[in-house]
C-alpha cells in the first residue's frame, strides 16, 4: 500500500506538487493520470526518497521509503528507463540490482526471460537498446526483488502494441496476486484499460480521484438539438449548469433522463441525447484538466 498525505513540493517560486493526498491499495492497479508537467514524476520521486518533500509525507506499507531496510525487496521502482549507464549490458545492470538486494544469481535469468530479453540482447550494451528494450529492462529491475509494491512512471513509453498488451497482463496478474501497482501515464487509453482506481492530477493538484467506475459514471450527459439556445435556457431555469461546445452540443452533469424530461416539458425536439459514460476517460480528462492544459481549453 502507498499512502500519500498532503504532499507539497515547492521549488523557488513554483509549486510542482500542491497538497496531494491519495492511497494506492493492494490488489489494485492505480492509474496516476495527468498532462505533461502536472507533477506526476515529482510525486513519484518524493515517494521513493529521491526528492525531499517541502511538506507532507509519503509512506510505503506504512513506512517512509528511506526507512525500508532493503527497499528493492519491498518496492519495485521504474522512474526513467533511460537513466542507466550506457556502457553496461542489460545483464550487468540486473546483476547490480540482484547483488545489492542480496538475491540469488538465478534471479537475473528469471527476470530476463520474464521480460523477454533474449540471451544475446542481454549481453548487449544499453547504449544499443531501443526505448522499448530499456523499458523491459527497467521493469525487470523493478521486479527482481519480488516486491509487494510497484511504482512505475510511464512504463508503456516506447513499447510496441504487443509490448503494451504484455505489460498490461503482467501488471494485472501482479495486482491479482495482491500487489500494489501505481503507474503514471499521459496515455489515457492505456490507463483506462488497465487501472482499477484513478488519480488525476493537473498543475500539481488532484482534480479527480476514485474508482474507474465512479469516475466514468460522473461524466454527465451530452445533448443536441436545433434549438440549442432555448434548451440551454430551459436547463438553466431548472438549476442545471450547462456548457455549449463548439460543435453545438450541450453538456451537463445532470443525468440523461432529467435532461430529456426538461426538453419534453419545454417542447424542444432533440436530435441526440446520451450519457457521456462511453465517451470515455479522455473527454473527462480533457475537461478536468482544461485550464491546466498547455493547448488551452479543450471542447
Amino acid at each position: 500500500m502507498i499512502t500519500v498525505d498532503s504532499l507539497t513540493k515547492r521549488y523557488r517560486g513554483f509549486t510542482a506538487v500542491d497538497d496531494v493526498s491519495f492511497v494506492a491499495r493492494p490488489g489494485r492497479v492505480t492509474g496516476f493520470l495527468g498532462p505533461n508537467g502536472a507533477g506526476k514524476s515529482t510525486t513519484m520521486r518524493v515517494m521513493v526518497g529521491l526528492t525531499e518533500a517541502t511538506s507532507g509525507s509519503a509512506t510505503i506499507q506504512g513506512q517512509p521509503f528511506a526507512e525500508l531496510p532493503n527497499p528493492g525487496r519491498q518496492v519495485g521502482v521504474l522512474l526513467d528507463a533511460s537513466a542507466q549507464h550506457a556502457g553496461r549490458t542489460g545483464r550487468e545492470i540486473l546483476a547490480i540490482a540482484q547483488r545489492t538486494m542480496g538475491l540469488p544469481k538465478a534471479r537475473v535469468d528469471e527476470m530476463l526471460s520474464l521480460v523477454s530479453l533474449t540471451e544475446s540482447e542481454s549481453e548487449r550494451r544499453v547504449r544499443n537498446y531501443s526505448l522499448g528494450m530499456r523499458q523491459r529492462l527497467g521493469i525487470a529491475t523493478a521486479l527482481i526483488g519480488d516486491p509487494e509494491v510497484l511504482i512505475l512512471d510511464e512504463p508503456a513509453n516506447g513499447l510496441d502494441p504487443a509490448g503494451i498488451r504484455w505489460m498490461r497482463d503482467l501488471l494485472r496478474g501482479y495486482a491479482n496476486q495482491g500487489g500494489t501497482v501505481l503507474l503514471s501515464s499521459h496515455l489515457l487509453h492505456e490507463i483506462e484499460v488497465i487501472a482499477d482506481d484513478l488519480v488525476m492530477i493537473g498543475n500539481g493538484r488532484i482534480v479527480a480521484e476514485g474508482t474507474k467506475a465512479e469516475l466514468l459514471h460522473a461524466a454527465g450527459t451530452t445533448v443536441r438539438t436545433t434549438a440549442a439556445a432555448e434548451l440551454a435556457q430551459a436547463l438553466r431555469n431548472a438549476g442545471i449548469v450547462v456548457t455549449q461546445s463548439n460543435d453545438g452540443a450541450l453538456r451537463t452533469d445532470a443525468p440523461a433522463d432529467q435532461v430529456g424530461q426538461i426538453a419534453l416539458n419545454a417542447r424542444i425536439a432533440l436530435t441526440e441525447l446520451r450519457s457521456s459514460d462511453n465517451a470515455g476517460l479522455e473527454e473527462m480528462f480533457l475537461e478536468l484538466t482544461a485550464e491546466t492544459q498547455r493547448e488551452g481549453a479543450a471542447a
Binding site: S116, L117, E121, G132, G163, L170, L171, G173
Partner: peptide
C-alpha cells in the same frame, strides 16, 4: 520480443 506470459513476477 513479445511473450504471452500471463504470470506475474
Amino acid at each position: 520480443m513479445t511473450t504471452l506470459t500471463q504470470e506475474a513476477p
